[in-house]
C-alpha cells in the first residue's frame, strides 16, 4: 500500500491512533529524542536523528524481571513483571534505527526467547522517515549495506516530498496503522511515484563515510587480533560507554538484585557496556579484556566479525552516533580503516 499524506493531515493520522501510545522525536535541551505525543498533539518530523535509538522501546535501559519477597528462612514469593504495554507507534524512525531492530530480534530470540523484549516488541509499530539528506557528517548506512530509504525493520516508510509525504506500508502492522486514518490519505499517482524515486535516488548520492570493502573486514579483524592498532586507537577512551548506550544494536546488559525494603526487592536488568573494565572482570580479579585496546577490539569485533559469523550480517547500521557523541573522538570508521590497512 502506497499513499500520499499532505503535511497538514499528519496530525489527523496521529489523532486516529487512539488506544495507542504514540511517540515522535521532540527537540528539548538542545537535542532530539523520542517523546510521547499527546492525543491530538502536533508532531514535528524535521529532526535530524534522535540521540537515543529506537531500541529502548523494546529493550528499555532498566527492566524489572520480577519482584521478590522472602522473610529470613521463609519461602520466597516471586512476582514476574512481564510488561503488558499498549500498542505503541513510533514516528520519525530513521532507516538506520529501523535496520537495528531485526538485529536485536535475533539476539533476543535464538534458543531462548526473551519474554520481556518480545512483550514490548510485538506491540511496536515503527513508522520510518527516509533521510533525504544525511542527518550527520558521520552517516555511513550505505557503507554497511543499508540505504537512506531502507525499509528493513520498519512497518511504514514515509518520504518527505516537500508539501506532502509519500507513505508506504511495509508490513501488515504498518498497513493497519495507516488504515486507521484511511480518509486522511490520498492515492499515490504516477507523478508521486516518480518523485519518490527521484528523491530516493538523490538521497543515495549524498556524501557518506566510506568503509571500503565490507566483505574483507571480518578477515582483516581476525588477522589483527594481536595488533597494537587497538590499543593505539583506544588510548584516549575514558570508558564512558556512550558509544554502546546510544547504539541501535548494542544489547549487552547486567542483572542485579535491588532492595526495595526489608526482605524484599527486584531483580533488574540494566544496560551494560563492553567498554567498562568490570564488564568481564571475574571476582578473582582476573580480567580477560583487561585493557582499553582489548575492549575496543571487542566492540568492533562483535559488530563486524562475531555477529557476521553468527548471523551473516553486520551488527552496525551506520547511524554514526558512536562517532558523533564520543567525547574523545574514537571513530569506528577510522578504526575499520586502520585495521583494514594493517
Amino acid at each position: 500500500m502506497e499513499k500520499i499524506l499532505s503535511k497538514e493531515k499528519l496530525r489527523e493520522w496521529v489523532g486516529k491512533l487512539d488506544g495507542c501510545e504514540v511517540h515522535a522525536p521532540a527537540f528539548a535541551d538542545s537535542v532530539w529524542n523520542y517523546a510521547p505525543v499527546q492525543t491530538g498533539g502536533d508532531i514535528d518530523l524535521s529532526h535530524t536523528n534522535t540521540v537515543g535509538s529506537v531500541k529502548a522501546f523494546a529493550f528499555p535501559q532498566r527492566e524489572v524481571f520480577f519482584r521478590f519477597e522472602q522473610a529470613k528462612g521463609g519461602a520466597p514469593v516471586l512476582t514476574a513483571t512481564v510488561p503488558e504495554p499498549r500498542p505503541t507507534v513510533v514516528f520519525g524512525v530513521r532507516p538506520c534505527d529501523g535496520r537495528g531492530m531485526p538485529r536485536n530480534d535475533k539476539v533476543f530470540s535464538a534458543e531462548f526467547k526473551d519474554p520481556y523484549y518480545w512483550a514490548r516488541r510485538e506491540k511496536l509499530t515503527l513508522v520510518g522517515l527516509a533521510c533525504n539528506e544525511p542527518h550527520s557528517p558521520n552517516c555511513f548506512c550505505q557503507s554497511v549495506g543499508g540505504s537512506p530509504h531502507s525499509e528493513e525493520g520498519l512497518d511504514v516508510l514515509m518520504t518527505d516530498l516537500g508539501d506532502r509525504y509519500h507513505v508506504k506500508a511495509i508490513t501488515p502492522k504498518g498497513a493497519e496503522a495507516m488504515e486507521r486514518a484511511g480518509d486522511a490519505f490520498n492515492e499515490a499517482g504516477a507523478a508521486d511515484q516518480a518523485e519518490v524515486e527521484r528523491v530516493h535516488a538523490e538521497s543515495r548520492q549524498q556524501p557518506q563515510r566510506p568503509i571500503g570493502d565490507l566483505a574483507a573486514i571480518p578477515e582483516a579483524i581476525k588477522q589483527n587480533f594481536d595488533s597494537p592498532v587497538w590499543a593505539e586507537m583506544a588510548q584516549h577512551c575514558i570508558g564512558c560507554g556512550i558509544c554502546t548506550f546510544l547504539c541501535p544494536t548494542c544489547h549487552c546488559f547486567d542483572i542485579n538484585d535491588e532492595a526495595t525494603g526489608a526482605n524484599k526487592g527486584e531483580r533488574v536488568r540494566t544496560w551494560d557496556n563492553c567498554q567498562f573494565p568490570d564488564f568481564t572482570m571475574h571476582t578473582s580479579g582476573h580480567n580477560p579484556r583487561h585493557d582499553l585496546g582489548a575492549r575496543l577490539r571487542q566492540r568492533v569485533s562483535h559488530k563486524f566479525l562475531y555477529f557476521v559469523e553468527n548471523h551473516k550480517t553486520q551488527q552496525c547500521t551506520g547511524c554514526g552516533r558512536c562517532i558523533s557523541e564520543c567525547p574523545v573522538g574514537i571513530d569506528i570508521v577510522a578504526v575499520l580503516e586502520r585495521v583494514g590497512q594493517s
Binding site: 531462548f112 549487552c252 551494560d272 563492553c274 564488564f279 568481564t280 571475574h282
Partner: peptide, 13 residues
C-alpha cells in the same frame, strides 16, 4: 570460565 550474568547468550559478556 568467563564472567556470566544471563547464562543464555544475551547479556553479551
Amino acid at each position: 570460565e568467563n564472567k556470566m550474568k544471563c547464562g543464555i547468550g544475551k547479556c553479551g559478556r
